[in-house]
Amino acid sequence: MSEVVIYHNPACGTSRKTLALLRERGVEPRVVEYLKAGWTQAQLKSLAARAGLPLRAFLRQRGTSAEALGLTGTGVTEDQLAAAMVREPILVERPVVDGPRGVAVCRPPEKALDLI
């Protein structure tokens, strides 16, 4: 099986549940604590492209400054979103799982099962 990567926030219950679910299924993913590691614009755009979604689908609004930063409006470009997510990694919804069958924001955690 190809490597599975979980972009993880250990403070997030959904992220912890997703990691536990993967491990219950015998998958030991590479865990990237993205709040520490950060993101690059290329990485974010690549993950969104592999997911078949616009980058906006990766924007976390609840509990972040996304609205105050003007990122929730319709005129915001992918480049603007990516730049903001690089500056403030908390703006990326979690957890993101990258597996042999694609990429998804795993809310609910069971979405990760489709990727392995």
Score class of each variant (00 low, 15 high):
Leu55Thr: 00
Leu55Met: 05
Leu55Asn: 00
Arg56Cys: 01
Ala57Arg: 12
Ala57Tyr: 05
Ala57Thr: 10
Phe58Gln: 00
Leu59Met: 13
Leu59Phe: 09
Leu59Thr: 02
Arg60Gly: 02
Gln61Arg: 15
Gln61Tyr: 03
Arg62Ser: 14
Arg62Cys: 06
Arg62Gln: 14
Thr64Trp: 10
Ser65Glu: 15
Ala66Pro: 05
Ala68Leu: 11
Ala68Gly: 13
Ala68His: 13
Ala68Val: 10
Ala68Tyr: 15
Leu69Pro: 01
Gly70Pro: 10
Gly70Cys: 09
Leu71Cys: 07
Leu71Pro: 03
Thr72Tyr: 05
Thr72Gln: 07
Thr72Ala: 05
Thr72Ser: 04
Thr72Gly: 06
Gly73Thr: 13
Gly73Trp: 07
Thr74Glu: 15
Thr74Val: 12
Gly75Leu: 11
Gly75Cys: 06
Gly75Thr: 13
Val76Arg: 00
Val76Asn: 02
Val76Thr: 09
Thr77Met: 08
Thr77Ile: 12
Thr77Glu: 11
Thr77Arg: 09
Thr77Leu: 09
Glu78Gln: 14
Glu78Gly: 04
Asp79His: 08
Asp79Met: 13
Gln80Pro: 06
Gln80His: 08
Gln80Val: 06
Leu81Ser: 01
Leu81Asp: 00
Leu81Ile: 06
Ala82Pro: 03
Ala82Arg: 01
Ala82Tyr: 00
Ala83Met: 11
Ala83Lys: 14
Ala83Gly: 13
Ala83Glu: 15
Ala84Phe: 09
Ala84Asn: 07
Ala84Cys: 15
Ala84Pro: 09
Met85Gln: 04
Met85Val: 06
Met85Leu: 09
Met85Gly: 04
Val86Tyr: 08
Val86Ala: 06
Val86Glu: 08
Arg87His: 14
Arg87Tyr: 08
Arg87Gln: 12
Arg87Gly: 06
Arg87Thr: 13
Glu88Pro: 07
Pro89Cys: 09
Pro89Arg: 08
Ile90Met: 14
Ile90Asp: 05
Leu91Tyr: 01
Leu91Met: 07
Val92Ala: 02
Val92Gly: 01
Val92Pro: 01
Arg94Asp: 14
Pro95Arg: 04
Val96Met: 05
Val96Asn: 02
Val96Leu: 11
Val96Trp: 04
Val96Thr: 11
Val97Asp: 01
Val97Cys: 06
Asp98Tyr: 02
Asp98Gly: 02
Asp98Cys: 04
Asp98Leu: 05
Asp98Ala: 10
Asp98Trp: 01
Gly99Tyr: 02
Gly99Trp: 00
Pro100Arg: 07
Pro100Gly: 10
Arg101Pro: 05
Arg101His: 15
Gly102Cys: 09
Gly102Val: 09
Gly102Lys: 04
Val103Gly: 00
Val103Ile: 08
Val103Phe: 03
Val103Met: 08
Ala104Gln: 05
Ala104Arg: 06
Ala104Tyr: 04
Ala104Ile: 08
